[in-house]
């Protein structure tokens, strides 16, 4: 079995977001780049499975669509335990563009399980995994919080509206994973860092693809406003505001 893990290269989640003067772009200068946290968990689970089933899982490949500045992130994934890496040399673009690039690069390659994070921590799009599945015409299962292999059967738990489901499916499949899929993200070992030096990182050319959307501009979110005081005789007001204004219930 070959596992492919899609990796998005994103700014460290503690980064303070800065913009260009015209507010049309994010200013990435000085940003520390990391593996998208959900992808990091996906990769961790893939490595755990390979360690647990060495005869079954032959290879873990990581892939990203991006410029050469994404290479350190891919090499970190190799240091964590992936066997090889692919970078589609295509920077920018929306989820459709990205998924098209990934699909182009892996079409015809024998990947049995493709893991994607449920969203990337930059554009929070929740889209690339599903799009990739459709472009490859694979099954997909979304909101996956556990993944186990039982021979050739693939057992997953997914979140559904109001609960959880355990599911059995088979390869090839795209699994879109979320919290719970692995607990502690892998930390690369010295040996891993050393062996990553000689692991293959293949750069493939981008394919012509049109994006389906584009960013028009950014705004800083509204500042936290002063505490709204609510009359203790009118708790319904609190319920109403939490529902319609704060939108947390």
């Amino acid at each position: 079995m070959n596992i492919l893990v899609c990796i998005s290269n994103v700014p460290d989640t503690t980064t303070r977001i800065k913009y260009s003067a015209d507010m049309k772009a994010v200013d990435y200068s000085g940003v520390q780049w990391i593996i998208n946290p959900w992808d990091e968990l996906a990769l961790t689970r893939a490595i755990e499975l390979k360690e647990a089933h060495p005869a079954l899982v032959q290879k873990i490949t990581v892939i990203t669509a991006g410029g050469a500045d994404a290479d350190p992130t891919l090499r970190k994934a190799l240091a964590c335990g992936a066997d090889d890496a692919i970078r589609v040399d295509a920077a920018g673009g929306d989820s459709l563009f990205t998924a098209t690039q990934l699909a182009h690069a892996v079409k015809g390659e024998p990947f049995d399980v493709i893991l994607c994070g449920i969203e990337s921590s930059d554009y929070n799009g929740s889209a690339v995994g599903g799009m990739l599945a459709e472009l490859l015409d694979y099954n997909s299962v979304s909101a996956v919080s556990s993944l186990n292999l039982d021979g050739n059967s693939i057992k997953v738990t997914r979140e559904i509206d109001g609960g959880k489901q355990s599911i059995e499916t088979s390869a090839p499949v795209v699994l879109i994973v979320q919290k719970g899929i692995a607990i502690n993200p892998r930390i690369p070992s010295m040996r891993g860092i050393m062996t990553a030096r000689t692991k293959p990182l293949k750069v493939v050319a981008a394919t012509a693809a049109a994006p389906g959307s584009k960013v028009v501009g950014y705004q800083a979110p509204p500042q936290k406003s002063a505490c709204k005081m609510i009359d203790p005789e009118n708790i319904d007001e609190l319920v109403h505001l939490l529902h319609t204004e704060a939108r947390v219930i």
Binding site: D94, S95, L96, A99, I118, E119, N124, G125, S126, A127, V128, G129, G130, M131, A133, E134, L135, S140, V141, S142, A143, R158, E159, I160, D161, I176, P211, G212, S213
Partner: peptide, 24 residues
């Protein structure tokens, strides 16, 4: 809806329709 089901289905629908998708 941008919930677990919408997240699962919208991207696939978008590809089938050759459509751009913006979520959430």
């Amino acid at each position: 809806a941008h919930n677990v089901t919408g997240k699962a289905l919208a991207p696939r629908v978008a590809v089938r329709l050759n459509a751009g998708l913006v979520s959430a």
